[in-house]
Write a protein that binds this DNA or RNA. Structure first.
Lengths: 242, 242
DNA sequence: CGGTCGGTTGAAACTGATCAACAAGGGTGG
DNA sequence: CCACCCTTGTTGATCAGTTTCAACCGACCG
């Protein structure tokens, strides 16, 4: 995988030196599976991306917009010395790759094997001009992302380790609920390093905090990267500092 | 015109200790490009807001959109126990208060005496439908705001105190440059508490870090809340962990 | 002139980071 | 099939950056 534990903090040392290498994502062409009524769909091509493979890189030429069909994708930014901040975990339906300059401002990588639909930027613009409603929709999803980013700013700036972990678990729980699945039973495909870089912690602190919640009886660790919330409400209130 | 009643709601302290209503709100701050002949202008009314007075509150009914004409406004979110995270400082030209739900997601307050133009939400929607280009512009500025939010996430999650302060100074410097003013001479109207809550630090750490930069000869403190950057490039590189 | 407020500075405490060791898979090659 | 290794996660001990608590200063104000 890409950046990991070793690159946290430590202003002096920086094991992985390069911010953004050149390697492109291994994106396999794939026939369109379910063509929706979506005009964007007509200009999209489907690809399957392996675990830990980049879909695009920070600094790379931003020539396409993507939509996640299946799997989980992380987007992150890097500091020159390799410190990493994961800015979001995407789920099915999410758009990404929005760039208003000519280069991507962050890297997108598959956390699990992921299926994405790729739309060239020029075509997206053309389709938008034809279907103003799409632009409205894109505005709404961008706005929702901004709202989520602001919540994350509150988390990163003002929450302690327990609150951060509980916020993370609550986010996963809410996603489950939105999918009509059991919100007390989470699948957590991301590594401790990913969680740490998302919450502004180290892997050790993530591990210790999860252990603490487990021994406190707040959560239970199941196998297959699954976590059970004994009481989602309690976890949610811990996330807010209760 | 006279300041509207709505924006002179209860004076808000810089750090309100009381909990806030659980109600969620959806608000977007976003910068505009040019304040020229604008159809939005026709439906706007101007107000002057005193220092530290709220323009709207987190949880309040989101019935209007605002554009900052003059002064500085801060936007912040609160945790139930009063911990505060400032998610942005707005400058002249910036839009804020756009809501995608029916209540505001956070509070907007004047950092300096501020002049704002207020546009009712229903009228904004009508004007948008009439001028599709406005919606496009809205998308662009929202995306720019999202990009800024992601940079701030990197700052909050992975930067140390010196890097945070230098990032803040660099942001102010870039704004000055964009206004055609001397980027090495900053006006800093916000208090130490505001800076602390923006950077995820305490007032004391902000003060100490600024002192450290001053004694290191990186910056000079001038009176009238002004700061001179001895070398903006150096400050910018310190912001990235150099 | 006393009081408050914003900012600075000092000392101690604490949370989370760092360094280090180890265990549990999982894959690979002999 | 098994030994080995490499990766991921856990746990312990110590360290350090930031926070907390506290005192102080100067400016401003009634």
């Amino acid at each position: 995988m890409a950046p990991s534990a070793a690159m946290h903090a430590a202003p002096t040392l920086a094991r992985p030196p390069m911010p953004f290498p050149a390697a492109m994502a291994r994106v396999l062409p794939f026939p369109s599976s379910r063509p929706e009524a979506d005009p964007l769909d007509a200009i999209a091509t489907t690809s399957v991306v392996d675990r830990d493979i980049a879909i695009f890189h920070q600094g790379g030429s931003a020539d396409a917009l993507f939509r996640l069909v299946d799997g989980v994708v992380r987007i992150h930014k890097l500091l020159p010395d390799g410190r990493r901040q994961i800015v979001g975990f995407l789920q099915a339906g999410d758009f990404f790759g929005l760039a208003f300059g000519d280069t991507y401002l962050y890297t997108a990588e598959a956390v699990t094997v992921a299926t994405v639909r790729r739309m060239s930027r020029s075509r997206v613009d053309a389709v938008m001009d034809e279907h103003p409603a799409l632009r409205q929709r894109l505005l709404v999803v961008t706005a929702e992302e901004l709202i989520a980013a602001q919540d994350q700013m509150l988390l990163l700036g003002r929450k302690n380790a327990v609150e951060k972990i509980c916020s993370f678990l609550t986010m996963l729980s809410r996603r489950r609920a939105r999918q009509g699945k059991d919100p007390a039973r989470l699948h957590v495909p991301m590594s401790r390093a990913d969680i740490a870089d998302y919450l502004g912690l180290t892997i050790e602190t993530v591990s210790r905090t999860i252990t603490k919640l487990k021994t406190a009886g707040t959560i239970r660790l199941l196998d297959g990267n699954k976590i059970a919330l004994c009481d989602p409400e309690t976890v949610a209130s811990l996330a807010e500092g209760a």
